[in-house]
Computed example of a mutant assay.
Amino acid sequence: MRSWAVYGGVAAFLLGAAAAATAGGNACKGTIYLTFDTGSQSQADLIAEVLNKHHVKATFFLASEKTVRGDYSLDPAWAPYWKARVEEGHAFGSHTFDHVYWVKDLSGGRMRVKPQFGAQAGKVQDWSAQQYCDEIRRVDTRFTELTGRHLDPIWRAPGGKTSANTLAASKACGYAHAGWAPAGFSGDETSSDAFPNKVLLDKALRDLRGGDIFMAHMGIWSRKDPWAPASLEPLITGLKQKGFCFATLRDHPDFKTKP
């Protein structure tokens, strides 16, 4: 069901070699999988800069979301950004094209959904499994147009909300769902007054364990004090100091190539 391109195996080898060099040449204490969902894109450039600075590869889940530029994150204007991330060796999955929220399962494998963007934004609709699959694949089609490269066969439901029907639909069209660990919730969608960045950072550094998937966004409209500028770099350096390495979900045991 899950097939990766040849470069995936090469990248996995290189990432494994790089990981072994972390913490002064000692073996990794464990691997953390950083993932980023599209959002307002206000932190897109900063995230790329920090990842490059620290030689960390991450996994990006893409939807065509409205950005602070006034366009959408999968518009042609974003092609240079995504091409650069491809060249850097990051991994990419679908976040549904119009950031479609699941509402409830219906009979016959159908489901009730509510797109956040696109022509049907805000309208509750009943979809078949094939329609849901097509929505996941729309991201791959656009991403290939923008970068010349297909997505990895992974996806993430908006809000992390899945169901028996959405999981069955995605599996039938070749995509495995990637959520996140409880300790991997960045909290960047919460109020910065109630959950200051230092509190979120301290919690992540305290609770993350080897094998955990960490999730943050590339910008959140509602958060007054953005998470990434204050937290991403100290999170990476703090985890490295604790002996952790980083990899994309191509190397995660639940998603990596099966021999």
Results as ranks from 00 to 15, higher is better:
112 R>N: 06
202 D>T: 12
192 S>L: 11
45 D>K: 09
62 L>W: 01
19 A>V: 11
254 D>S: 13
63 A>C: 09
12 A>C: 09
147 T>I: 05
73 S>Y: 01
132 Y>A: 10
227 W>A: 05
236 I>L: 07
248 T>Q: 11
55 H>L: 03
84 A>H: 12
77 A>L: 08
123 K>V: 15
28 C>E: 11
235 L>F: 04
93 G>D: 11
220 I>H: 02
101 Y>A: 11
27 A>T: 14
114 K>P: 12
114 K>M: 15
74 L>G: 01
32 I>F: 00
217 H>G: 02
55 H>R: 13
168 A>I: 04
114 K>H: 13
119 A>R: 14
14 L>S: 05
152 D>Y: 07
183 A>L: 02
71 D>A: 08
235 L>D: 03
120 Q>K: 14
198 K>R: 09
150 H>S: 15
218 M>I: 06
242 K>Y: 02
155 W>N: 01
65 E>S: 11
27 A>D: 12
258 K>P: 00
40 S>Y: 09
109 G>D: 06
119 A>M: 05
97 F>C: 05
145 E>Y: 11
66 K>C: 01
177 H>V: 08
84 A>G: 15
180 W>K: 03
80 P>Y: 04
45 D>F: 06
73 S>N: 06
17 A>H: 14
56 V>G: 05
248 T>A: 10
247 A>C: 06
80 P>M: 13
200 L>N: 05
80 P>E: 04
50 V>K: 10
63 A>E: 00
24 G>E: 05
218 M>G: 12
56 V>C: 08
199 V>E: 03
100 V>S: 09
201 L>S: 05
62 L>F: 02
69 R>M: 04
106 L>F: 02
87 E>I: 12
32 I>E: 00
203 K>H: 06
202 D>Q: 11
195 F>W: 10
49 E>A: 15
120 Q>F: 09
204 A>N: 04
193 D>A: 15
8 G>A: 15
1 M>Y: 13
27 A>S: 13
256 K>T: 08
